[in-house]
């Protein structure tokens, strides 16, 4: 195994870069300073086992079985898997390594999360631009904020300030409408 394009070439002038071993920087002819850190994993050999072999050159091969035809890609890590390695996980296809990892930590299979707190905040603030919209948007913002507290959160550190702010703003907007309604009713009666 060696470095693969585009790592082997300068991203500015496309010239081939003669990287120095040990991660020392080298200068490209265009002035770009480049360095490559290489790890032992680059020489790792893949295991072999029986299975459906590749018939024609250029076919995608299984990550774990180099001579086996790939039938899918792992939804979690992107590795190609053959029929032997393919594991159906609900509506997703996983490789054995990801399933093993998932037994210990389910968050390792998460590829994306919806940020309800941001949705709530945008809804609450956006409705302020045209205030009449807040009659409908404020309850939606409150719902989204509550959902943000219940839904799985971001994998990385993230505060709930947005959700709290959206909840507060939504409640204020709803309160404003209630007050307006009461005021109009009282005025009509008087």
């Amino acid at each position: 195994m060696k470095l693969q394009p585009p790592l082997t070439h300068c991203h500015v002038c496309l010239a081939t870069i003669p990287y120095a071993p040990g991660g020392d920087p080298v200068e490209c002819r265009c002035g770009v300073m480049a360095r490559a850190l290489v790890y032992p994993a680059i020489f790792r050999l893949r295991s072999e086992s029986a299975g459906e072999t590749i018939q024609t050159e250029g076919e995608a091969a299984c990550f774990a079985h180099e001579d086996k035809r790939a039938v899918a890609a792992c939804d979690s890590c992107g590795r190609f898997v053959c029929a032997l390695c393919r594991i159906e996980w609900g509506s997703r296809v996983l490789c054995p390594a990801c399933v093993n990892a998932a037994e210990k930590r389910t968050d390792l299979l998460v590829r994306s999360r919806t940020m309800y707190d941001t949705m709530a905040l945008i809804t609450a603030i956006g409705s302020l631009i045209i205030f009449t919209l807040s009659l409908f948007a404020a309850p939606v913002a409150i719902y989204l904020a509550i959902r943000a507290f219940k839904a799985p959160r971001s994998l990385v550190p993230r505060t709930m300030v947005r959700a709290w702010f959206a909840l507060g703003l939504g409640l204020v907007e709803v309160g404003g409408w209630v007050w307006l309604l009461v005021f109009l009713v009282m005025k009509a009666r008087s």
Binding site: V32, A34, R35, A36, L37, V38, Y39
Partner: peptide
């Protein structure tokens, strides 16, 4: 396998 950094 590798980390590559190119500074412009």
């Amino acid at each position: 396998q590798a980390l590559v950094l190119q500074e412009r």
